[in-house]
Every structure is written in structure tokens, then in C-alpha cells.
Design a protein around this nucleic acid. Structure first.
Length: 1029
RNA sequence: GCUCGGAUGGUGGAAUUGGUAGACACGCCGGACUUAAAAUCCUGUGCCUGUAUGGGCGUGCGGGUUCAAGUCCCGCUCCGAGUACCA
């Protein structure tokens, strides 16, 4: 009987679902293992072959761990709040709740217009969706020509993942976001205590204020004023809350935010890429707005040191380190010089630090190299220190700088600009006057917004000094700075009074000591990491569990959670520019409405994904976000697989929340993901057609034979290379046929490449099959195609990121249909190392499919479906093959080398086929090993061997027995001067000396010796013999 | 610019601690079966050279260490990812 993968896979999929084979509970008799995938955002485009890559790898590993006797938690869910569903809602009026559900659960597409009926995985109708029929909308999804939108769940199920679906979470379900809101409440109610070095309750802070004011409080805060206990008590509620907001871990503050007008919302720093929004590429500007923020800066140091305890790639760790951006140095005050130009006011450095300019430097050792100062144009001191003479210049410069967007400023790095203020500061050590400039290379938002310029040691200061002809002092011994600054830290300090003769490290220490002794500043650590803006002016996100009374934020009580997303008629901001939730009437909030108004913001996408791995442990708990008991059983995620693009977003925020929940004692670990692997991107193979464009000079009313003309590749090549050959001639003829005689010297041709759906193009010949193209694709309908000589239309191709817009998406569904899920699983693994990005190409898939058929044939299955295997003891050769495979499989799985795992199986089955092995014991063990990779076929064959259905998933992974690999003889490779020449069969038991003697006396080896005596003979027992002549 | 990866046949890739470079698969060449094609099976396949046993060359480039280098060290080239005036 042939291998009928369709029936086999359907049956087993059903079996697993009906028997809940992969349902898991907290079983203390077994060691636990937690394998997690980054959950997907369910977009309307569906899964493409890139998505399952990581899921397949993690599933193989989860199944492997089960066979090793672990109790494996392997869940899946959906990150289902987010922008695309909302934008779609804005366009169509369809509630994001409905589109989200459609994208996950699937539905029928009625008349290509409204998808109004949800369907179950088997295609039966589940329920009528609540769609307002008066809303006119059209949903078109080019990926599905038939009427069924499959949905993520159905697509995932087809691949045979061993998820415990009873634990599914959706971040947009009220049962889930209830706890996202609850965690927010805890953050609101905590501050970060630097002494205990953890988050503490606000009540503790208030107690401290009531006893001592804030002088004794050592906490992370934006509060710059000090107050006594008496003052605190005298403050009114508003004032008190304002101060507390400066301590809370979740707080409201006016902050400069990345405002994206096109999306009508603020974006986090990691959602802005090159000055435009990550989603949609819209421009982003800076705007001051009252926003919720998360005081992630409080955790900067722990986020940094925690990296040392996790097993992640260096690249991801580096990205996080750079993002946190720790730099150590000190602050230093430069007093202002208050005399008139040309005279010395005689004040000394330590006098009057009032109004002094504070700088932050990482190189206090170079303080004697300071020859001027530069302030950011936005620095608050600029206006007060600027002299009348320079007022106009400074005003102009400030205006220019403010008009430049962040992006322009970045693009303009090479242009050196600046302006002297006319003011001077006093060098705190030498007492010399130094000029104060403003320049936009100094950023207001980093450090203190002011720098002490040391041109000899900093390239930017150097360039600035050269450009404006400012003094450059060399404070390094034996270093040439005539061309560039010397930025290494290995020079000896000179011309620097008490620092002379010291190396940089010692000098830094001494300089900071001196600065602190004189009261001019102190040692300080700065972080680049900024607090994270936590509110979005969107509809489709978690509402805040917050209401306002007299514009004071108040938390709603726990028993009122979740605050449900109210219904609105329109998903756009209000005319007054308020978020969409401002459209919700009091009635829409139902009984949840409190105070003067509810908070109109919603939480950002990363809120729900910052803790979802905890919810999987206890997904149905209505009393807690996760019970302590279950969290203590499952603990950290042991293996996390996902893309590296979340390095500075999700992965940082999830670590932050985990540390916070740890501080508050809810969980007993403070890093969420013990080990992480980042799967590479799967690239698509795009196809292009070449659209001809015609330009002409002085020819009026040039007629075209069709709306568009598409030329084949040969035509394109002539046009692009500027050749006027036979193809150009053909185009000329075509144009002439509709225009009559023309002066072709006045006509120019050029081509534009246009993405063509890869399904229209033959993968091998790259010929377009026009019969396959969408008949409603008006562009092709109204076009003329100029073909090759053989009448085919030859496309261009290019490897680029797989995406719907590039029309190069391959869905797993078509491959599962054609080859089966087991083939797809093994093929995706066979493509190459998991971490590497690779182009998608189905050329090799036959090889993997053939492997499974070859495996099937080993079982001699007759027409009645009976396997015919031998129960006799296995042959020595077969045992050797089996145990070599066990060894390699264990090694490869332990180092996550899934691609070599597949080839191990191929070698094994090839050898067993050559041996004509149909031994039951061997096949039994092989099936267990293979079942993580190809679960369906292994289940089927497992039963055919007489085992109970489903038990293969919890069988024992075969144990390696080295004795089967021991051979009496070994073929020693013999090399001469490192060049391998021949192999000599020798007993394994030979000592190196015996090997040497045997080799030297061997007749074949003597041929290469040419009668000479070898200078040296190296014998590596069991490995190689090398003879040096 | 800085940081982190990477470069191996016609293609995807293998070689885990320095020890037979090219496993496995695709593709291709030849053969079997077939009226024929598809499918399947068998053989060969790094390059150059030779009828052949064989010989020479070979892991981006140039050096080095070593009995032995794809692997280690030094200096480059190119490609990818991240980041970017962070004082």
C-alpha cells in the first residue's frame, strides 16, 4: 500500500484533537520544560511559509523533550490587539473584534462581499457574526480564491503542532486584558526604591514623606524639589498626586513624544525607524503631550546585569546593551563668568555654583583639554547667558535648529553648525575663561544637554573647533593630533597639572576624586534608555483602568475589572483631536463609567505581550493573573523561539514587567526567558514583469496600442543597456502600427519593474502563464505583452523579504495539500540552520517527500494495510545504523541543529533500505526518534507495528549503546606531509606504535615513502596517521 | 563610523574539540522500465588533466602558527543585520 499522507494526516489530526493528546497539567512527578513561540499577530494575510519555521523547530523540540520524560508546556495564542485591525475598521466600519475573530477562526466569504459567518475548522458554520448589514464593505483577500477564509487556527492545525490548545490566550479578550489592566494598577501603585533596589508600594513612600519629607527618600524619581514632612502634609490632594506621579512606575506626565499625524497616535521609540513609523512608514514629529509612561529607566541597571544570566545570542544581548546605553563618568559644574569682555572678574571656581552649567562627561581625565563649551540650542540657559551682541545670531540659529526635524538633523551629521553666545564660563580647575557656544550636535535630551568640549580627545569637538577656529589643547603625551582627535584611552596624560604622567584609568579616578572634593560635581552613571510612553490614541487596545476626577487620575477597583472596551460609532479621533474612546458615550461605558470621565487612551501593543508567557501557566484563573503555585511549577520559559526584530521592544518590556512582578513577590524568577533562539527570515522569490514607458520630445498625441505594454526580459535588457537592437525594432514597429511614420530618434523607452504574483509564473522557466492571472486584474487585461521569440513571456526574479505587497507569498496550505504536513515540517527544517535567513525555494521538497515514502516502504505494508516486519533479532549492521543515528539525533537536537537532523534520518533510512532491514525492534526505535519531525506518519506506522494509538508521543527516546559501533578494524587515513593519500585497514586495538610500524611496512605506503626515512610519524589513535618526509 | 554575523561545488547546505573538505538533498549527465512521456529505480557528478591506475589545484583575498587549518592568529575585500552626533 502506498503512503497516503492525506488520509493519515487527517485522521491523526482528528485523533489528537478528540483525545486532547497534548493537554498538560502540573505533574510534580516529572521535571517540567517550557517551550514557547512568540505568538503571532493574526493579520488578514494569513500565515506564510516563514511563520511556521520557528513553530516547527519549537514543536520538534517540545516533542523531543516529552520523549525524554519531561512534562512539557507548549502553548499558543494570539497577540490580537493592534493597528492593522483598527485601520481596517476605519476603512470598512467592521468592528476590529470581528475581523480579529475572522483572522483567527476563519469564516465564509459570502459573495465576495461580507464575511458574515464564522466556520469551524471542519468547515461547518459556527455562528452568524454580528455585522451591521447596513455597513457597506468589501473584503478582498487575494490569497484565497475560494470562499473560505481559513484563519490562523486552521492553518496552524494543519501543520500538526502539539500545542495544548486549552491554554490558548488572546490579548484582546476581556478575560485576558483584565489582568493586563491589573498589572498596570500594580505599576501605578509602586515606585522604585534605590536602597532596597526593588519596586515598593507607594503607601510606603507616603509614610516616609509624612515622617521626613522627601529628603531621606532614595528613589528613582523626576522630582527635583525637596519638601519637609510639614510641607507634605500641607499640600492639597492635587499637589500630592502631582508629586507622587514623579515617583510612580506608571505615571502621567507631559512628555515629548513621537507623534504620528497620519496614524493619529504616539509611538514608542522602538516603533519609529529612521524617523518614520515602523508600520506604514508615515512621518513622525515631536510633540509635547500628557501621556502615560512606564519608568523602565529604574530597571536599567538590572536589565543590563540580568543579560548575563540568560542564554541568548550575543547579537541580541548587544542590541539591548546598546539600547540601555550605560556610560560612566561624572557631572561637572562650569560657573559662568560674569565680567565684561576683556577683563577678569577674579572670581574663583568654587564660588557661586548657582547658575553654573552642568555637563556630563565620560572622560574627566581630559578636563584640562577643555577649550570651550557647547550647549544644545534648546538648553534653558541659552537665552539668559547670550550677550546683546550675539542675541540675533543665537536667535537665528535656534530657529533654524528647531525647524530641522529629527530626521534632517541625523542626515546632516557631516555639516558642522554652531553659534557663539558671547558668554564665557570659568574652567573649574584652571580658572581660565572658555567660550560658550551652542550647536545642534549636542542633544538636549541626553545627559545635561551641555558638553565640555575636549577637541584633542573627541572627534566631534575636534571638528567643531577646526571649523570655528577654536583652540585645540593637546593633553596627551607623544600623540599627534594635527589630523584628528585621539579617542583611544591608552595615552599618558600631560599638560594637566595633578594628572600629569597618569594613564587614563588612574587619571579618571583622580579627577573624579578632585571634582567631588571641591564640590564641583560627582561620579555619575548615565543611561540612554528613556522611559517608555505607554498610551496610544487608538481604539483597538486595552482601556486604562483609570477615571478622572477634577482631572486627577484614579484607579478603578479590582472588582470592576476588566474595564471593557466601549462601543463607538467611528474609530477615528474626535474632531477636537481626542482619541477614539472620547467618542464613547457614558452609556457605552455602561456601569463602568466613573468620575468625570474615563481615560480615553488605550495601552500600546506591547502591554499584552509583556506577560502572556505567565498566563499560559494558568489561563483560566479568574482570581489571579497566575497562581503562585503554578508559576512556581513552570517557572521560566526554558526555550523561547522567535524573530530577532523584537530585541529592543517586546523582549525588553517583558523583562521589565517580569522583574517588577518578581519584586512584588508574585513570581519567583526575574528573567522570563532562560534560553532564546532567533529564527532567520524566510525570503521570498519575487517575480517581475516589465512595464514599458514611452517618452517623446516634440511628438504630439502619440497613440499607444493599449493601456499598458509589458515587455519580456530580452526587450528589457536592450532598453536597460541602451542597445538599439532587434527587440527595440519590434517595439518601434508596434508603435508605428498605430501612429504611422514616426521619427524614432525623438522617442525614448524605459521600463519599470512591477511585482507579479508568483502563482502566475512558472518557477523554473520564469514564464508568465497568462491563463492563470486574475481575470479581474484590469492591468493585465488592458495590456499588450511583447513576448520572446518562442512566444513565452519571460519574467525577472529577485530574492527579497516575503510579504503580501511583494506578491511573493507562499502559504503553507498549498504545500500541505500537495505533499503533506510531515513533508513540509521536514523540508522547512532541511533548508538550513534555523538562525540563518534563507530564500524560500520548493525545488528540494521532493527529496524530503521521497524520504518519507522510502521510510513507508521499509514496513512492507500490504494491500490490507498490514505491515510485515521481522521479529527476529536485528542484524549487526542494522543495530550499528540505528545506534549511530541515535547518537547523532541526540547530539543534533541538543544543539538545535534541526537541518542535520533531517539528513541523519535520510542516511539511516538509506542504509536500512540497502540492508533490506524490516526488523521490528529497529523500526520501532526509529519511529520514536522521527516522531518529533514527522508526527503523523510515525503515529500511523507505530500503530501498524502493533502499538496503542497515541502512545508514541510519550514513549522513551532510544538510548545510545556504544558497543554497537565498536569495530574490530579501522581504516586509517594515511597522509604524507598533510596530504591524504591512502587508507590502511588496521585492528582498532593497535597501539600508536603498532599502527606506525604497520603503516611504514605497508607496500602501498612505501610507494609514497620513496625509500626515504620519515622525519616524523604522527599517529592519532582512531583518527589519522600523518607521515612527515 | 561603530557593534554583531557571514563568505565552502551548478544550488541549499555538512564537516560538533585543529585530524579523510564537499555528508544529505536538489539539479545535471548516462542507463533501466515504457510505443512514448510522466513517475520510479540504478550509475556518475568540486575543478583541471589523462584512455586509465593516476597527477595537479581547491573552503572570499594576502600572510602566519602547526606534523596537520574551512576551523586558530594578523592584515584586507565583499555581503547581511543592528545602531548612529549618547559627550
Amino acid at each position: 500500500m502506498e503512503y497516503n499522507f492525506r488520509d493519515i494526516e487527517n485522521n491523526w489530526r482528528k485523533f489528537w484533537a478528540e483525545n486532547k493528546t497534548f493537554k498538560v497539567t502540573e505533574d510534580t512527578s516529572k521535571p517540567k520544560y517550557y517551550v514557547l513561540d512568540m505568538f503571532p499577530y493574526p493579520s488578514g494575510a494569513g500565515l506564510h511559509v516563514g511563520h511556521p519555521l520557528g513553530y516547527i523547530a519549537s514543536d520538534i523540540y517540545a516533542r523531543y523533550k516529552r520523549l525524554q520524560g519531561f512534562n512539557v508546556l507548549h502553548p499558543m495564542g494570539y497577540d490580537s490587539f493592534g493597528l492593522p485591525a483598527e485601520q481596517y475598521a476605519i476603512q470598512t466600519g467592521l468592528h476590529p473584534k470581528i475581523t480579529t475573530s475572522i483572522n483567527i477562526d476563519g469564516c465564509l466569504d459570502v459573495n465576495g462581499k461580507i464575511k458574515s459567518q464564522f466556520v469551524n475548522i471542519d468547515g461547518s458554520i459556527k455562528e452568524e457574526a454580528l455585522i451591521d448589514k447596513s455597513i457597506s464593505c468589501t473584503i478582498k483577500d487575494e490569497n484565497y480564491q475560494d470562499n473560505i477564509i481559513k484563519g490562523y487556527r486552521n492553518q496552524l492545525d494543519k501543520i500538526g503542532f502539539s500545542y495544548d490548545w486549552d491554554r490558548e490566550v488572546r490579548t484582546s479578550s476581556p478575560e485576558y486584558y483584565k489582568w493586563t489592566q491589573w498589572i498596570f494598577k500594580q505599576l501605578f501603585d509602586c515606585y522604585y526604591d534605590n536602597t532596597s533596589n526593588k519596586a515598593e508600594r507607594i503607601s510606603k513612600l507616603v509614610e516616609a514623606f509624612e515622617v521626613n519629607g522627601n529628603a531621606e527618600v532614595n528613589a528613582v524619581s523626576d522630582c527635583e524639589t525637596t519638601f519637609s514632612a510639614a510641607e507634605w502634609k500641607s499640600f492639597d490632594a492635587r499637589k500630592k498626586e502631582e508629586i507622587l506621579q514623579e515617583y510612580r512606575l506608571a505615571y502621567l506626565a507631559d512628555s515629548w513624544v513621537n507623534w504620528c499625524p497620519a496614524l493619529g497616535t504616539v509611538l514608542a521609540n522602538d516603533e519609529v525607524v529612521n524617523g518614520v513609523s515602523e508600520r506604514g512608514g508615515h512621518p513622525v514629529e515631536q510633540k509635547l503631550m500628557r501621556q502615560w509612561s512606564m519608568r523602565i529607566k529604574a530597571y536599567a541597571e538590572r536589565l543590563l546585569t540580568g543579560l548575563e544570566t540568560v542564554d541568548w545570542t550575543d547579537s541580541i544581548k548587544d542590541q539591548q546593551r546598546n539600547w540601555i546605553g550605560k556610560s560612566q563618568g561624572c557631572s561637572l559644574f562650569f560657573p559662568l563668568w560674569s565680567g565684561n569682555e576683556g577683563e577678569d572678574n577674579g572670581s574663583t571656581a568654587t564660588e557661586a555654583l548657582e547658575g553654573a552649567i552642568e555637563v556630563f562627561t565620560t572622560r574627566p581625565d581630559t578636563v584640562y583639554g577643555v577649550s570651550f563649551m557647547v550647549l544644545a540650542p534648546e538648553h534653558p540657559f541659552v537665552d539668559q547667558i547670550t550677550t546683546a551682541e550675539y542675541a540675533e545670531g543665537v536667535a537665528n540659529y535656534k530657529k533654524e535648529a528647531s525647524l530641522k526635524s529629527e530626521r534632517d538633523r541625523q542626515a546632516d551629521v557631516k555639516n558642522i553648525t554652531g553659534q557663539f553666545t558671547g558668554a564665557f564660563a570659568i574652567h573649574p580647575f584652571t580658572g581660565e575663561k572658555v567660550q560658550i557656544w551652542i550647536g545642534d550636535y549636542v542633544l538636549a535630551s541626553y545627559g545635561t544637554g551641555a558638553v565640555m568640549a575636549v577637541p584633542c580627545g573627541d572627534q566631534r569637538d575636534y571638528d567643531f573647533a577646526k571649523h570655528f577656529n577654536l583652540e585645540i589643547k593637546n593633553i596627551f603625551a607623544d600623540v599627534d593630533i594635527s589630523e584628528a582627535a585621539y579617542t583611544e584611552k591608552d595615552a599618558i596624560i600631560a599638560n594637566s597639572d595633578f594628572l600629569n604622567g597618569l594613564d587614563a584609568k588612574t587619571a579618571m579616578k583622580k579627577a573624579i576624586e578632585a571634582i567631588e572634593a571641591k564640590g564641583l560635581g560627582k561620579g555619575k552613571t548615565n543611561y540612554r534608555l528613556r522611559d517608555a510612553v505607554f498610551s496610544r490614541q487608538r481604539y483597538w487596545g486595552e482601556p486604562f483602568p483609570v477615571y478622572f476626577e477634577n482631572e486627577l487620575p484614579k484607579l478603578v477597583n479590582d472588582d470592576q475589572l476588566p474595564i471593557r472596551l466601549p462601543e463607538v460609532y467611528k474609530y477615528l479621533p474626535t474632531e477636537a483631536g481626542e482619541p477614539p474612546l472620547a467618542r464613547a458615550t457614558k452609556e457605552a461605558w455602561k456601569e463602568q463609567f466613573q468620575g468625570d470621565r474615563m481615560d480615553y487612551n488605550t495601552m500600546p501593543g506591547w502591554a499584552g505581550s509583556s506577560w502572556y508567557f505567565l498566563r499560559y501557566m494558568d489561563p483560566k484563573n479568574e482570581a489571579e493573573f497566575v497562581s503562585k503555585e503554578k508559576a512556581d511549577y513552570w517557572k521560566q520559559v526554558d526555550l523561547y523561539i522567535g524573530g530577532s526584530e523584537h530585541a529592543t521592544g517586546h523582549l525588553l518590556y517583558a523583562r521589565f514587567w517580569t522583574k517588577f512582578l518578581f519584586d512584588q513577590g508574585y513570581i519567583s524568577f526575574d528573567e522570563p526567558f532562560a534560553k532564546m533562539i532567533n529564527q532567520g527570515m524566510i525570503l521570498g522569490n519575487s517575480r517581475f514583469a516589465y512595464r514599458l514607458h514611452i517618452g517623446s520630445v516634440g511628438i504630439e498625441n502619440l497613440k499607444l496600442p493599449a493601456r499598458f505594454i509589458y515587455v519580456s526580459k530580452s526587450y528589457r535588457n536592450e532598453i536597460v543597456n541602451g542597445i538599439k537592437g532587434e527587440y527595440t525594432e519590434k517595439i518601434n514597429q508596434l508603435i508605428q502600427s498605430v501612429n504611422g511614420e514616426l521619427d524614432f530618434s525623438k522617442i525614448t523607452y524605459f521600463v519599470n519593474q512591477v511585482h507579479v504574483n508568483i502563482n502566475y509564473v512558472d518557477g523554473e522557466t520564469l514564464n508568465i502563464d497568462l491563463a492563470k492571472t486574475d481575470p479581474y486584474h484590469s492591468e493585465f487585461n488592458e495590456s499588450i505583452f511583447l513576448n520572446e521569440k518562442d512566444e513565452s513571456y519571460l519574467c525577472g526574479s529577485e530574492v527579497e523579504k516575503m510579504s503580501k505587497s511583494k506578491l511573493n507569498v507562499q502559504t503553507p496550505d498549498e504545500l500541505v495539500e500537495k505533499f503533506g504536513a510531515d513533508t513540509l515540517r521536514m523540508y522547512e527544517m532541511f533548508l538550513g540552520p534555523l538562525e540563518q535567513s534563507k530564500p524560500w525555494d520548493t525545488k528540494g521538497i521532493n527529496g524530503v517527500h521521497n524520504f518519507l515514502r522510502k521510510l513507508w516502504r521499509l514496513f512492507n505494508i500490504d494491500e490490507y494495510g498490514q505491515a510485515h516486519v521481522s521479529a527476529e533479532p536485528a542484524s549487526k549492521d542494522s543495530l550499528k545504523t540505528l545506534h549511530r543515528t541515535i547518537k547523532k539525533m541526540t547530539d543534533d537536537l541538543d544543539r538545535f541543529s534541526f537541518n542535520t537532523g533531517v539528513s541523519n534520518f535520510m542516511i539511516c533510512v538509506n542504509e536500512l533500505t540497502d540492508q533490506k532491514c524490516n526488523n521490528k525492534h529497529i523500526l520501532h526505535e526509529l519511529l520514536i526518534m522521527l516522531s518529533p519531525y514527522a508526527p503523523h506518519i510515525c503515529e500511523e506506522l507505530w500503530v501498524k507495528l502493533g502499538n496503542e494509538a497515541g502512545t508514541i508521543n510519550f514513549a522513551s527516546f532510544p538510548k545510545f549503546d556504544e558497543s554497537h559501533l565498536v569495530e574490530a578494524n579501522i581504516a586509517y587515513p594515511v597522509s604524507f606531509n598533510g596530504k591524504m593519500r591512502l587508507k590502511i585497514e588496521l585492528p582498532t586495538a593497535f597501539t600508536p606504535k603498532e599502527v606506525e610500524e604497520a603503516v611504514l611496512s605497508n607496500a602501498d605506503a612505501q610507494k609514497y615513502l620513496e625509500g626515504k626515512t620519515p622525519k616524523k610519524v604522527i599517529v592519532v589513535p582512531g583518527k589519522i596517521v600523518n607521515i612527515v618526509l
